[in-house]
Simulated assay, not measured.
Amino acid sequence: MTTGRRRLLGAIGGAVGLAAAGTAVGLLRQQRSVGRDAGDEVAFGTLRSSPITVVADDGLPLHVEVDEVEEDDQPRRRRGQGRGPAVTVVFAHGYCLNLDSWHFQRAAYRGLVRTVYYDQRSHGRSGRSEREHATIDQLGHDLRAVIEQVVPDGPVVLVGHSMGGMTVCALAEHYPELIGDKVIGVALLSTTAGGLDVSRILLPLLPARLTNRATHRAVATLAVGHGAVDQVRRVGRFIANVATSRFAFGGDVPPSYVSFVDDMLAATPFEVVADFFPSFSGLDKFDHVEVLDQVPVSVICGTADKLTSVGHSRKLHARIPSSRLLECEGAGHMVPLERHDQVNAELDQLITAATTRAGAR
């Protein structure tokens, strides 16, 4: 058989296998009457579990929450007989957000798949980082600490949105030995491994009258008076709300979505914004993402993303040849919220494909 024919048959077999595997999590959800759009009837920010503190390598406390599989599934899972995948899915959120940003994913997988959510350093309920440790590379080390301390046993699927996706890329660079061994699947949402236009990042974070100062010099200047900037942001919440709607979403969404995102942005002190800002301009990890090709990878982005444009996702897809690329037509940067049904459907397939492949090894 020729090499070309083998590749063609392998591609066809992989596609058929993925299509079949993708039904497993979905079927389990249907049996529990949990839809992909679960969360519509649950107030934002109310999904909680007992907090766990993970200590990063520099001593910083990270706030972590784990949703365990329901008790009646545990015996079957231990014997390998459960219909749900025996895997832990770890979610890493984006810049100036917090773990609540995964609202619809958390609602969909709660009780069905073991899931881990954590606040990145200086975000949400996690400790405030020293400025020298407010880097993408450090976030990669933090993710490793979360995996080691919360998922000591069993495989992991990583899901990263925006800065969370960059976090996964940093993990792949510094700990490539985890890919294909501990890490059996990856989803990269609305993210990049480099070449980011950093001026775009500030657009939904400041009132409109300040957005034209989105330069490193301006950020450094604003950081010195971060308290005053925070006050201006609070006074200008209406303007900021309009900016959030325009830059975080691609189309019309319920006002509650906009307010939810704006509340997370507003809760992030501008000093934190300034601390992490320099990391984005120097980000260049495209040469390190190819290691992810050892496992199933889903790259997801909205075609109307104004912060990390769809071109970044297409480049990631090209650098990870066997990855799947889902382009959500007309969606913006907050695709996990705006198109949560599409995102959850893709995650269903990813989780099941990853566990199926891992089980066949």
Rank of each mutant, 00 (worst) to 15 (best):
Arg6Thr: 07
Leu9Pro: 04
Asp37Ser: 00
Gly39Asn: 12
Gly39Pro: 09
Thr46Tyr: 07
His63Gln: 15
Glu65Cys: 05
Asp67Ala: 05
Arg79Ile: 12
Gly82Val: 07
Gly82Leu: 03
Val90Phe: 07
Cys96Phe: 07
Cys96Pro: 00
Asp100Ser: 13
Trp102Pro: 01
Gln105Asn: 13
Arg114Cys: 03
His123Asn: 06
Gly124Trp: 13
Gly127His: 03
His133Met: 03
His141Ser: 14
Gln149Val: 02
Glu173Ser: 15
Val186Cys: 01
Pro207His: 10
Ala208Gln: 08
Leu210Arg: 07
Ala214Lys: 15
Ala220Gly: 14
Thr221Gly: 11
Thr221Val: 08
Leu222His: 11
Arg234Val: 11
Ala240Glu: 13
Val242Asp: 10
Val242Met: 11
Asp252Ser: 14
Asp252Met: 09
Asp252Asn: 06
Pro255Tyr: 10
Met264Trp: 04
Leu265Asp: 06
Pro269Ile: 06
Val272Glu: 09
Ser279Gln: 04
Val291Lys: 03
Pro296Arg: 00
Pro296Gly: 14
Pro296Ile: 05
Arg319Trp: 11
Arg319Lys: 12
Met334Arg: 14
Pro336Arg: 04
Val343Cys: 11
Val343Glu: 00
Asn344Val: 05
Asn344Thr: 04
Ala345Trp: 13
Ile351Pro: 05
Thr355Glu: 02
Thr355Cys: 00
Ala358Ile: 06
